[in-house]
Design a protein around this nucleic acid. Sequence first.
DNA 1: AAATTACAGTTACGAATGTAACTATATCAA
DNA 2: TTGATATAGTTACATTCGTAACTGTAATTT
Lengths: 142, 142
Amino acid sequence: MKSEFDLHSFLPFLMHHASEKLSLGFRDIYRDRYRMTRSEWRVLATLGQYGALTATEIMTHTGLHKTKVSRAVFSIEKRRWLKRFQDENDRRVHRLDLTAQGKSAFTSLCEAGVAYDRKVRDFLGEDEFKRLSDLLKRFNDL
Amino acid sequence: MKSEFDLHSFLPFLMHHASEKLSLGFRDIYRDRYRMTRSEWRVLATLGQYGALTATEIMTHTGLHKTKVSRAVFSIEKRRWLKRFQDENDRRVHRLDLTAQGKSAFTSLCEAGVAYDRKVRDFLGEDEFKRLSDLLKRFNDL
DNA sequence: AAATTACAGTTACGAATGTAACTATATCAA
DNA sequence: TTGATATAGTTACATTCGTAACTGTAATTT
């Protein structure tokens, strides 16, 4: 069976592999250090970076499905890494804010993130790294 | 809380987003057309491209975990898209080969794949597309 | 040859996921 | 105001997933 199609050159396949390699490399860090899942890491990172947000705002920042956000928030709350505050004007909404412990975990993982970033940057080279970042951003408009 | 870390510029995050966008675009096709999962599509594509293989060979080609391969093979077999042949020399091993129906599904999805590829190529531009492919391939060595 | 180790592939089980339904609240329209 | 519709977030349920244990066979060691 022959065809002009080659799985190993198929961009979704290539991209997925590179993406997994990259994601898992960093996942090892937050998993081993704090037993966190990817959703939890993303929620933590978003709250750490932007301060208090609602679950919906976290969704739009991270692209996570609302059930994932809900579960990740619950799990982070259980660790006492965040507190909820009911919104005064809209009682459906909870403001979510990291505690000191949550911030400290965020800071620690940020450092790891920067280090990981540097490692990848060194591997690819500064120019290629930048080029790749820019290219990937274009996919938002696909 | 401020930091030099920005989730939206973090390569694992960027890459994952681009990857999902790309993968899901194509997944719609094999899912709607044949109700297939990603693992099933990959196994089909690999068998279609390389002819009869063992489960282990499929693993190395696709990077899928062996349980995923096992389940995908089982599911494709149930559709009668592949047949198993026990290896003469090693009875642990099964040679897996697509049936005419399997090949026909593969051919149909290949065409869709080539079309999808062209669409992405047009979107990115020929040069950028090539550059991205090359860049992604480098991640195998990370 | 018997015992041990390695390997191909499957299965069991708990964890994570996605869809859809749900609760509670807010907004809009008549 | 009341009734209909929309939204924030959670929960239930079925599916999928990954890890580890398992089965059967082959290869290696003693």
